[in-house]
Computed example of a mutant assay.
Amino acid sequence: MDGYKPPCSVRTDVTARRDVALYLGLAASWGTAFVATDAALDTVPPVLLAAVRFDIAALALFAVAAAAGRSLRPRGRGDWAPILLGGVCNIGLHHALLFAGQRTVPPAVAATLLGLVPVLTPAVARVARADDRLAPRGIAGVLVGFAGVALIAHPDPSNLSASVGVALVLASAAVWTVGAVLVDEDDAELGGLALQAWTLLVGALALDAAAVVLPGQSLAAATFPLATVGWVLYLALVPGAVGFLVYFRLLDRLGPIEMGLIEYVIPPFAALFGWVLLGDVIDAATVGGFVAVLAGFCLLKGDALRRRLRGWADAVRA
């Protein structure tokens, strides 16, 4: 039996099932991140919270990369361009705006609003590539998605802070989308683990600088009781360092369409954990908006989505 290798169909089946488990685990982890952030914001200002989270997460990824013997030195524009753009947009600005918005927006609502990212991505990509236009069905998908967001947001002039919070979360979705579209790792020489460690570090340093400059965001404005320390460590290590490692591992195997769908798997977990730990209740408008955003995405990427999901189902059945 030495040297025996299981049939290809068996290996494919095991890999597909493992990917499903990792996918659901990542969605659950990132769903809990909204709840953990909401809890930590009770005693830590939003920009400072984001800075501390990614300081710790970046150090953890560097430690893992060094222990694995990976090269850690960026080697030119091919490495530095995605590191700087991804660090500033996808880590720094995105999380500063998201955490600031979460001061008045419940975790499940924030997670649902970020469901706009897969809807915005094709539209932003087509702006970046002027020769590629949206088909009528794609335009309809964008409009349906925005209608869903309007249903979730339902601006309330009598509650200005909540409306501002929704606007900040939507701005964080836009910033994430721009970074995701413009970041190009094709010419990178660093491996994915080291590249992500540097990206997190650049974002963390940008957040550190913002926490020093912006009023009310310094360490003097924060307190760190034991519960908050626990939430911050959890944010940094589980949905942060481990979450990003799993995300990029799956992204390499499954591609951007399947990984874009994770934005629609996260809100139920955020709602569940928010209900269990914080007593949050989700209203019908949020549920209806979530369905509309999902429908908009399906209009935009329906054909490609069907092909990908059919291939994944075939792999599981093989």
Rank of each mutant, 00 (worst) to 15 (best):
I266V: 15
A162D: 13
A140H: 02
G255E: 08
L261H: 12
V166T: 09
L200S: 13
A174M: 13
G179F: 06
V265C: 11
A211D: 01
A206R: 01
E185V: 11
I152P: 10
E258H: 15
L235E: 01
P155Y: 06
L219W: 03
F244W: 14
P155Q: 05
A197K: 09
L160Y: 04
P136L: 09
A206S: 12
V175F: 13
A174Q: 09
P136S: 08
P268Y: 09
T223E: 08
V246S: 04
F224G: 07
R133W: 07
W198T: 05
G260P: 01
G230V: 11
W176Q: 13
G145S: 12
N159L: 11
V232G: 07
I266R: 04
A210P: 02
L170E: 01
A180T: 15
A209F: 10
P157S: 09
A153R: 05
A167S: 13
V142A: 11
L143D: 06
G138W: 06
V238D: 09
R253P: 05
P239W: 13
A270R: 02
F224Y: 14
S161H: 11
E185P: 00
Y234V: 08
L233H: 03
L200K: 02
L151W: 04
A171M: 13
P239T: 06
I257P: 00
G260M: 06
L190S: 09
A220K: 12
A210D: 00
P256C: 14
D208P: 01
V212F: 08
V164G: 01
E263Y: 15
A188P: 03
P157I: 09
L235Q: 12
A270W: 05
Q217F: 02
A204K: 02
P136V: 02
V265S: 10
L160W: 12
L201Y: 00
W176Y: 15
L190A: 06
S158M: 12
V166A: 02
D208M: 03
G191T: 07
A270P: 10
